[in-house]
């Protein structure tokens, strides 16, 4: 079980309220990602759930039992830290065994779980090394192993991949998703990277300055962002946001069109001058200037498109995939 509910939780550091009243339901077995720009309170929220910080007001319920005043060890949650937080003077085996040793698990059971975790995480050959003798990805796996053996109600990850290089990041992302599918345990994952959020989550929680801007599945957020912030944050490259007369034509204060919903055509309602084009092979991202709509419009075109710097091209947006926002920045249905 791993069902977590936050009721009107707030957190202040001195005078500064970092988390304004916040309600959130996390269902058993869900992969929930907290995503938001740096400093928006993601880590703080995670640490509140973990019990490493005390809530200023409100309560936290884990599996139906009030957990607000429980110490971290009693909440049956396991955390993987950004710095891995391995114990440097212990071997990998001892690191993984540490939570079980503290819980008084029998030797045979410890051995069984260590072997299981080591096998699942490809650590069998490294069990007798110290963390200092491992690569970043291996350390990350040890940290995950230490979390797994506790058989927690939920896993908490705080930006676990941000210290890894790009290739490893993609690999570890898959491994963590894989692990979630296999264990079917609730996971809460904090990241500032919307690609990680989109690829891993069952449910994304978009945060800004401690506020929940929107909660939903990746595709819900992609298709129906509730406001301008979510629209701009989810999706890569970013959505093009257009204000002024063009938006007025569609009865909105701002309209948003994703790069993949603008086509390069012979003739079209919009036009502009090609700046940088990024050729990825499968796609080409064009940065189009002088459209008279927004500063630079990003357009996703086919990989083989042959346009050059300085060419003037015509663009046609998919009007039915256009997002409309009012003066407050809220979505117009």
């Amino acid at each position: 079980m791993g069902q977590i509910t936050l009721n009107k939780v707030t957190k202040s550091f001195g005078e500064v309220q970092v988390i304004p009243p916040l309600d959130l339901d996390i269902n058993d077995g869900e992969f929930v990602v907290f995503v938001g720009p740096s400093g928006c309170g993601k880590s703080t929220l995670l640490r509140l759930i973990a019990g490493l910080e005390d809530v200023t007001s409100g309560d936290i319920v884990i599996d139906g039992t009030p957990a607000t005043d429980l110490p971290p060890a009693k909440r049956r949650l396991a955390m993987v830290f950004q710095s891995y937080a391995l114990y440097p003077h212990m071997s990998v085996r001892k690191n993984i065994a540490f939570p079980m040793k503290m819980a008084g698990v029998s030797q045979e059971e410890q051995q069984r779980r260590i072997d299981g975790a080591a096998k699942a995480l490809n650590l069998t050959d490294y069990l007798d090394r110290r963390p200092g003798q491992l690569s970043g990805g291996q350390r990350q796996r040890v940290a995950i192993g230490r979390a797994i053996v506790r058989e927690p109600a939920a896993f908490l990850f705080d930006e676990p991949l941000s210290n890894l290089d790009a290739a490893l990041r993609v690999g570890m992302r898959l491994e963590i998703s894989e692990l979630h599918k296999r264990l079917e345990t609730t996971m809460i994952y904090v990241t500032h990277d919307q690609v990680e959020a989109m690829t891993m989550a069952d449910k994304i929680v978009v945060l800004r300055a401690g506020h929940i801007e929107q909660v939903g599945s990746p595709l819900e957020l992609y298709r129906t962002p509730r406001n301008l912030f979510v629209a701009g944050f989810i999706g890569s490259p970013k959505m093009n946001l257009i204000e002024g007369a063009e938006a007025g034509k569609h009865g909105a204060n701002t309209i948003g069109v994703r790069p993949e919903h603008v086509r390069v055509t012979e003739t079209g309602p919009w036009s502009g001058v090609v700046g940088v084009s990024e050729h990825l092979g499968s796609d080409t991202f064009l940065h189009v200037h002088d459209t008279g709509l927004c500063d630079v419009m990003t357009v996703r075109a086919g990989g083989e498109l042959n346009v050059h710097h300085g060419d003037r091209i015509s663009l046609t947006p998919d009007t039915d995939k256009m997002h409309r926002f009012d003066a407050e920045g809220l979505r117009i249905a």
Partner: peptide, 26 residues
Amino acid sequence: DSEQLEAAEMDGAGPVSRFFHIMLPH
């Protein structure tokens, strides 16, 4: 590293265990 102490706390180590298992070796 304070995260090491926090990790130990989450792993169920009380203040005395944290001292002997984390701080003293450090």
